Amino acid sequence: MAENAKSPRGAADEVSHKVFTVANVISLIRLLMVPLYLALLLQGLNLAATLVFATAAATDFLDGQIARRTHTVTRLGQLLDPAIDRILMITGVLGVFLVGRIPLWVIVVVVVRDAYLLIGGGWLISRFRIRVPVVYPGKFATTFLFIGFSGLLLNWPLVPGLGWCDLSWLPGFNGAPVSWGIWFIYAGLVLSLGVTVYYTVAAVRQLRDALARERLAGHGAA
């Protein structure tokens, strides 16, 4: 979703149209780390790719916190912050898929879920000015996924699988050794899908209110 334009004390901060703020510069640096991460990974430089990805992921909270605490929340920042999170998430799962460390269904879930949030959120903002605030469980889900991807990128140490099945597309549950990061991936997926349901319900409620206001305004004009 987007930056919550609230100060730590709960008062609403003015949202400006500035471009060059400290928070926005940090967001842009995080964006530039994405192609660097992919280049390093595809060259087989696992440790370097992990460090770049982990740095970009670990600074996820930094731009939003700086914007709120310095009262420099911007329209650009409200778009960049969630968009870069989604881009980093998609490229993270794509990278580990390309090097064969994660099954296809995981990348499908992540990409479809993030596309749903991006497209749906963009439509709600542009059409009805509806913005569903980010909730902390969503941040936790993103953190779990980022940690999981970092573990899969590093690919060490490997832990034994549970041996509950022989399905190759369920790493960790079969008997093959797997990176510890897969368990963070599973936790992040479950939590992120739950948060997506919450966002959907909250958006539908706001959409109903917006449509009701439009109908009332139409009757008033008539």
Rank of each mutant, 00 (worst) to 15 (best):
M1L: 01
A2D: 02
A2S: 11
A5Q: 00
K6W: 01
K6H: 00
P8S: 02
R9V: 00
G10R: 01
G10L: 00
A11Q: 10
A12Y: 00
S16M: 01
K18S: 08
V19A: 03
T21Y: 01
I29L: 15
L32Y: 06
M33Q: 09
M33A: 12
M33N: 09
P35C: 09
L40D: 04
L41T: 07
A48M: 11
A48F: 08
A49L: 08
A49E: 08
L51T: 08
F53G: 07
A54C: 13
T55Q: 06
A57W: 06
F61S: 07
F61W: 15
G64D: 05
I66Y: 02
A67N: 08
R68H: 09
R68G: 05
R68Y: 05
R69Q: 12
H71C: 01
H71N: 14
H71G: 05
V73P: 04
V73G: 04
R75E: 14
R75Q: 14
L80V: 05
D81G: 04
A83I: 09
R86T: 02
I87M: 11
I90D: 03
G92W: 01
G95A: 02
F97C: 00
V108A: 12
V110G: 02
V111N: 04
V111T: 15
V112S: 10
R113Q: 10
R113E: 04
D114W: 01
A115R: 03
A115M: 15
Y116T: 14
L117M: 14
L118D: 04
I119K: 06
G120P: 07
W123S: 10
I130C: 08
R131Q: 15
V134K: 09
V134G: 08
V135T: 14
K139M: 13
K139R: 15
F144S: 14
L145T: 14
G148L: 11
N155Y: 14
W156Q: 14
L158F: 12
V159Q: 10
V159I: 15
G163D: 12
W164N: 08
W164H: 09
C165P: 00
L167P: 03
S168E: 15
N174H: 11
A176Q: 15
P177M: 12
I182M: 13
W183G: 05
W183R: 07
W183Q: 08
F184S: 12
I185T: 10
Y186S: 09
A187I: 08
V190Q: 00
L191R: 09
S192A: 14
L193E: 08
L193N: 05
V195F: 04
Y198S: 05
Y198I: 09
Y199D: 04
Y199F: 05
A202S: 11
A203I: 06
V204N: 00
Q206L: 13
D209K: 07
D209Q: 12
L211A: 07
R213D: 14
R215C: 00
R215A: 11
G218C: 03
G218H: 13
G218F: 10
H219R: 13
G220M: 09
A221W: 04
A222Y: 04
